[in-house]
Design a binder for these strands. Structure first.
Length: 876
RNA sequence: GCGAAAGUGGCGGAACUGGUAGACGCGCUGGCCUUAGGAGCCAGUGGGGCAACCCGUGAGAGUUCGAGUCUCUUCUUUCGCACCA
């Protein structure tokens, strides 16, 4: 063993060993309990970033720990390889997305391997490979057959200059990112997946996901958004019928809305419809002011956050509906806050009992009518009314329903509506069907053919996959597939005549909605999954960013159920246990020349000045010594120039230090702040560990393995700490899934070993056990250095193949324990008592203490609280 | 706007089930060693006070023998909002 810790050599040796022994190639074995550990696969953006390192360090630590517990572990890796950045890179550099993506994959695979993650590369997949997306297409055709996939129109962001559909990300403040043109909303036909058919099941099953973070379950439940309410039809008045003409689809019925507060029906003073509502278009015909407003609403982005924060504006159509119970005319307004994509594209306006309607009515001087009197609130319609808006109470001004409590009024009014055929109780979901059509090149082609005679025809299974041509170059103006005649021209599978291929591709969320199933049988050429999925699934531990808490996880839960209903898999829930990892942040530094734009400097180039107490007092740029401004913490990004390349870190300190820092600096679920000094500190720790093992092992092998009898003094304390550490680390990893405290525990153990100076063979044996335990406990987190140190400690077998040891109960026995003594809840003393001391002896021990006596005084305690083994609280 | 979370020393964090606030690490201070290094070792480090002690977990209230932890109000920050992945 050499004295110096040299990470490069250590890591090469360990990785060579794992590779030659195929340590991480997983095989199905029905006789062994499996553990499927999955970290979300990366988008191949070019280089690994710190978020990846963190994600995979967590997953690998868990996988290695479970492997040492004797489980049959599968930890695969793949590439979420379709997506917009490849097209952006193509526009910027003129490189076809396929080449760019594949080069990135090759580079990043090298980086992952250098970090020494225990991955089964034999199952590697990339979603841009026809072997994979073939099954997206096959599954899509099956879903279309079953009515899960269907076609309807949807709203997209349209850039009128580039004449192209933009992603939300490409819309900046309502303008196109490249052209700067004002974005318009445009309706186009698209394919949707009927996720709403599974809404109830997806919601109910959340209760069974007890190993998911509570907040993720809450967010999903709110997203699915079950609400009980009532459909209400407001019959059209004569003026509206005249505008709609006889052709309108529901002209003879009326305007349908959904409400959760039908008890406020008598408070309706207006109706609000979306600018995209058919009636809005019809009413615009002879009304220039309205037409201008509808036109204005068509501009701007489709994002809900934008729509919801926009100033609530509206325009009266001058048309009316009739109140379903009173027959009174009600004005119809077009309002910019009503979404066509949610519900019916129309809402009833009850200003006195809804926040948004209240604001809208005030702005447009629409009358308000109070119809619910909450208990103990003055009726008034000024600002003071705001807290009462959504309250329930007793119905007033509601005809025959006045005097009923809100719940009773809801039931009675719904019944009255139903009797007239103008309404019915219904459950409404916030969840909308999933639009999967994208007018983009770098994605999975939707396998459809448009034939003039036969209409829309799916591509027959035998002709799948529809291969995406890989040599096209997007230029920012529309989908290059649409201009590729070689792709578009085809023959109709049904009539044999010339036809045109669909050029829309699928949302990349489709790709990631079932990749975890494919890993179980990635070499299966005849089906998307096979019987091996039954062995490996569900994923026992899924790890990924909190930003995926809703969409990706919900789509995957939906997709798995669809495959279940097709008989392809038996499970419904793909992920048993979920860990949502926090983001990686770094400091942001900049200078702002007067009148100029901010120039950002990478924190690595910045020198921070401290005062004598260690407080940060300023920062300057290393190169010129002039000061720079500190702008706080932010996620690592190019625009803020605060990224840290993991490659540099690995080259400087090695993979083990990179992993150790990521696991030590924060618990997995919290955000993590990058710190160069922190990483150095972890490197220092690994060096100390190395030195400790070196100093111990140069003295030669142990003369004999110890037979542990009862020990005394320092040796007993050392063994106690050793086995306490083993217990703590196991609990931290297996139960709590936290690594920072596990690592801290080993640091404490190593600090104690350094202070433990007992000479002789007994001392050496105790020290040996402590060091062995430290190496064992750290090995899931820093596997390379531990692999080598394990051999240095005299073992023949590789550490990865060792079984995780049990703590020795004998070493954990303590004869006395320290009790905290409080007087009136304030800490006053500590006393040692026998381990199993009863209340009487604990109490008398506490009262013997001089400080305690001083605070208790001469009077008898009013009450004494005793928590065995922990504390005595004397109340006086 | 709606939904979800988080606020603890100079900094990252620990305190898991209501029971010792600040483990572990970084930074900083002093010292030692030295073929001088961004190395290693030792000691100190929440604030106040000579001390006994007192004060301290974003702010404000409450429950309790006891609150960082539970309840309510409030402020700030972060994440998601359906075409970024």
């Amino acid at each position: 063993m050499q004295e110096r810790y040299e990470p490069a050599a250590v890591e090469r040796a360990a990785q060579d060993y794992w590779n030659t022994h195929a340590s991480f190639v997983a095989r199905e074995d029905s006789g062994r309990q499996k553990f499927y550990c999955l970290s979300m696969f990366p988008y191949p953006s070019g280089r690994l970033h710190m978020g990846h390192v963190r994600n995979y360090a967590i997953g690998d630590a868990l996988a290695r720990y479970m492997r040492m517990q004797g489980l049959n572990v599968l930890q695969p890796m793949g590439w979420d390889a379709f997506g917009l950045p490849a097209e952006n890179a193509a526009i910027a550099n003129g490189v076809p997305p396929a080449r760019w993506t594949r080069e990135n994959i090759a580079y990043m695979k090298n980086q992952l391997q250098a970090l020494g993650f225990g991955l089964d590369w034999s199952r590697e997949l990339a979603t841009c490979d026809p072997d994979y997306y073939c099954w997206n297409q096959w599954l899509f055709v099956r879903m279309r057959e079953r009515g899960i996939a269907y076609k309807k129109t949807g709203v997209v962001n349209w850039d009128p200059v580039d004449k192209t559909v933009l992603a939300n990300e490409q819309v900046i403040d309502g303008h196109g990112w490249r052209t700067g043109a004002l974005i318009e909303k445009r309706e186009i036909p698209m394919y949707y997946l009927r996720i709403t058919a599974y809404a109830a099941e997806l919601l109910d099953a959340l209760q069974g996901l007890t190993e998911w973070p509570e907040r993720v379950r809450t967010m999903q439940a709110n997203w699915i958004g079950r609400s009980e309410g009532c459909d209400v039809t407001f019959p059209y008045a004569q003026d509206t019928l005249a505008v709609l003409g006889g052709a309108a689809h529901d002209a003879n019925r009326g305007m349908k809305v959904f409400t959760t507060r039908v008890d406020t029906l008598f408070g309706v003073t207006f109706m609000a419809i979306s600018a995209e509502h058919p009636l809005a278009t019809a009413a615009s015909a002879g009304n220039p002011a309205l037409a201008a407003f509808v036109e204005e609403c068509r501009r701007g982005s489709t994002m809900e956050a934008d729509v919801a924060t926009v100033e609530k504006r509206g325009q009266n159509t001058g048309l009316h509906v009739r109140h379903p119970l009173t027959g009174e005319p009600v004005e119809i307004w077009v309002a910019n806050y009503v979404l066509m994509s949610y519900g019916e594209g129309a809402v009833m306006g009850v200003p006195a009992h809804d926040d948004r309607d209240f604001e809208f009515a005030r702005r447009h001087q629409i009358p308000m009518r109070v119809v619910v009197q909450p208990a103990g609130v003055e009726v008034g319609l000024g600002d003071e009314w705001a807290p009462a808006l959504s309250a329930t109470g007793v119905s007033v001004n509601s005809g025959e329903f006045s005097g009923l409590a809100s719940a009773a009024a809801t039931a009675a009014i719904a019944a009255a509506l139903e009797q007239r055929g103008l309404g019915a109780k219904r459950v409404q979901w916030r969840l909308r069907d999933w639009g999967i059509s994208r007018q983009r090149y770098w994605g999975c082609p939707i396998p459809l053919i448009h034939c003039e005679r036969c209409g829309e025809v799916p591509v027959p299974d035998a002709d799948l996959p529809v291969r995406l041509p890989e040599d096209l170059l997007p230029d920012g103006s529309g989908n290059p597939l649409a201009k590729c005649e070689a792709f578009v021209r085809c023959t109709c599978p049904s009539c044999g005549q010339g036809a045109r291929r669909e050029t829309d591709t699928m949302d990349t969320f489709v790709d990631s909605s079932w990749y975890f199933l494919r890993f179980a049988s990635s070499d299966q050429a005849g089906a998307p999954v096979d019987a091996r999925a039954q062995y490996w699934l569900p994923v026992d531990q899924y790890i990924g960013g909190i930003e995926h808490a809703i969409l990706h996880l919900l789509y995957s839960r939906f997709w798995t159920r669809v495959m279940r209903d097709m008989g392809l898999v038996e499970l419904a829930e793909p992920f048993s246990k979920l860990l949502t990892q926090g983001m990686v942040l770094n400091q942001i530094y900049f200078r702002q020349p007067s009148g100029g734009r901010r120039v950002y400097f990478n924190p690595a180039e910045v020198l921070v000045q401290h005062d004598a107490a260690g407080k940060r007092i300023g920062a300057s740029l290393q190169s010129d010594g002039q000061s720079v401004e500190y702008a706080g913490l932010g996620t690592m990004s190019k625009s803020k120039n605060n990224g840290v390349d993991p490659q540099t870190l690995v080259e400087k300190y090695g993979a083990d230090t990179a992993r150790l820092f990521m696991l030590f600096a924060a618990p997995p679920e919290q955000t993590l702040e990058w710190s160069d000094e922190g990483a150095q500190g972890q490197y220092r720790f690994l060096r100390r560990l190395w030195k400790a093992v070196y100093d111990h092992s140069v003295a030669g092998p142990l003369s004999q393995r110890a037979h542990w009898g009862p020990l005394q003094g320092a040796a007993a304390r050392m063994r106690l700490l050793t086995h306490q550490t083993l217990k703590r680390v196991g609990d931290d990893i297996a139960r709590r899934r936290v690594f920072n405290t596990a690592i801290a525990a080993v640091m404490e153990l190593l600090n104690a070993v350094a202070r433990y100076e007992e000479p002789g063979e007994l001392g050496r044996a105790v020290r040996h056990e402590a060091l062995e335990t430290a190496v064992m406990c750290l090995s899931p987190m820093v596997p390379h250095v531990c692999h080598v140190l394990w051999f240095c400690l005299g073992h023949e077998r590789a550490l990865i193949d060792e079984a995780w040891p049990q703590p020795d109960p004998l070493a954990l026995i303590q004869e006395t324990v320290e009790l905290v003594v409080q007087v009136n809840g304030k800490l006053r003393a500590r006393v040692r008592v026998a381990a199993g001391a009863d209340e009487a002896s604990a109490r008398s021990a506490a009262l013997e203490d001089s400080t305690v006596r001083r605070f208790v005084g001469e009077t008898a305690p009013r009450r004494v609280i005793y928590v065995p083994g922990k504390l005595v609280n004397i109340v006086v």
